[in-house]
Design a binder for these strands. Structure first.
Lengths: 253, 253
DNA sequence: ATAAAGCTGACAGGCACCTGAAAGAGGTCC
DNA sequence: GGACCTCTTTCAGGTGCCTGTCAGCTTTAT
């Protein structure tokens, strides 16, 4: 715990052995974590999403069919649902319609393949809150989850503060020493991957994984390039290099 | 969105450590239950709907003609209107047009028979928010009511001020630097979708959803076109593009 | 000193976005 | 009915930002 930080009901200090000097304010509806239901039958995608979401300190239940997913939804209270539309035993839309028809209000984000535009629109009309087109990168997922969950809570701020840096995921905006900085998509994704675990070391491989939709390969030093670009925009001192290991977002160098 | 609900003006300043530079002067419509006006002359259907809606803890007024329904609409504040199109003393569309023409903003869901597709299309152009084709099941009704009223509630309502821009949702008026600007229907819809969450990123899909509440698909860059027109009318600096993500209504760019 | 690892400026290509134009649908006024 | 008018939607050409790549340089470890 950092005694220097003024106590407030909304502040949640990071669990850490080091006194790390960052804080997360009002993430996820004022609670530290969400219980998330993932309904997705693709194993690769499912694992990636599950791991990413779990890394953000949320509890994840992963179901692979309408049947089991619907059962989970009916019996457990979730803070957010990630729903694939094309499932082995039916359409996710039917599940969604049924859920909403019964008065369910849990926010739902649809995961949809590229060629299912009409499904997407139907999804939105059936009561979905947002959608993501596969393949999506995991940073994008974080942003959407935050935005949706914030819309529901009516609580505005989603903010990670690290030293002079303030990262607002829902607005996709960063301020460094008071100045607002706009980041491009990839830049944001890298920062998001680092910010998911402030003061922990994040390997290049992990960043790549968050950056590129599952499967696509990268053959150059893209991560280095984006770290460089981030440093240029945010200031030199926010991202530390750990040679041979990875990067770390944090205060001290 | 419903100006009828008792106004208790309170000022909510933008959250946060980030100075977001906008102000919302509004009331918060946190009520879970709605006052619903049902205009429907079929006795069986009317009873079923009335009972179902009432069971959902909403107050229901049931009128059976344009005449009485219009009178109720004019004299009472409703949170939602369910409107049959084919009524003994005229078309519901005329009532809807008149209501919207007088600046009424209460959400309206149309109930239409299966063979009235052209009416339905006219309905959307007349300012309805959603429609249901008879016969519909009551769960579907609940879902649509929820979706529509969610779209309307829990959001800043009356006046949004962003720099030189003032957006008055109740009056459907916009002023920039003191000058009143006239917007067409679609232009307004886009601006309204952006103004619902100032300084937050609104995706193209979300704008489309606000634009086409009826599931009609869009296959071109309509959103881009309307953003372009809005910029021309309001000034270049009010709407920011976030490449690949969406748009943002806000102060600085 | 040497090799390994990382940094960063430059650049070409792609793609998202912008915007003027034009056609069609509806409405209005005579 | 016919001549306007506005609004909507689509399209196509142009523009600029973002991206991935590489080469040459700097830093670090041994």
């Amino acid at each position: 715990m950092n005694p220097a930080i003024a106590p407030s009901p909304l502040e949640i200090s990071a669990p850490s052995l080091l006194d790390t000097g960052y804080k997360v304010i009002s993430r996820w509806d004022g609670a530290a974590s969400l219980r998330v239901l993932l309904i997705e039958d693709d194993a690769t995608l499912g694992e990636a999403v599950r791991d990413h979401v779990a890394a953000g300190d949320h509890a994840v239940d992963w179901m692979k069919t309408i049947d089991t997913g619907g059962a989970a939804l009916a019996t457990t209270s979730y803070g957010l649902v990630l729903l694939d539309l094309r499932l082995p035993d039916g359409s996710g839309i039917d599940l969604l319609k049924k859920f909403r028809g019964q008065g369910g209000t849990t926010p739902v984000i649809i995961l949809t393949a590229h060629d299912q535009i009409s499904d997407r629109i139907e999804g939105l009309n059936s009561g979905a809150d947002d959608y993501l087109v596969k393949p999506f990168n995991l940073g994008e997922l974080t942003a959407r989850m935050l935005a949706v969950s914030r819309r529901y809570s009516g609580r505005p701020v989603t903010l990670v503060k690290i030293g002079e840096l303030e990262i607002d995921a829902a607005d996709r905006r960063v301020t460094a020493s008071g100045e607002t900085i706009t980041l491009s998509g990839r830049e944001w994704a890298v920062l998001d991957a680092l910010a998911a675990r402030p003061n922990a070391v994040v390997s290049k491989a992990q960043i790549e994984e968050a950056l590129y939709a599952f499967g696509s390969e990268i053959e150059s030093n893209t991560v280095e390039v984006y770290v460089s670009r981030l440093r240029k925009k945010l200031g030199r001192d926010h991202i530390a290099t750990l040679r041979g290991i990875g990067y770390r977002l944090g205060r001290e160098q």
